[in-house]
Amino acid sequence: MATYDYVEKAIKITRREFLGVVGVGAAILWTGAYAATDLVQDRTKYIKLRAAGLYRDDAKAAARQSHNNAAVGEMYKKFAGKPLSPLAEELFHTRYVDRSKLGGMRS
């Protein structure tokens, strides 16, 4: 039990001070909410803009299907024959490696 003879006078909070405290608190909460909502949505913006660029490139292309790319047809005619031809298999196809069996394993 503390004993003392003097104590600080009580203060009266003015309206302005009260609003100030409430304002600061609200600003902090709003910052957090903003971080969690508005800015998050922005994250996909760059993907969408770049993707839209490629779809624009597609829409304005003269030929829009791979088999209608005359240069590809010309290449097959002059060089590789046809898709899945032996030369196409040799140059355009590959095999895969089961890397889980490559050894030197570090768990």
Binding site: Y55, D57, D58, A59, A61, Q65, S66, N69, A71
Partner: peptide, 18 residues
Amino acid sequence: NPLARYSGAGTIFGNTGG
């Protein structure tokens, strides 16, 4: 240059689903 020509199908390879 025939190797610089492409179709719209080729260009959308860069997008998911392309």
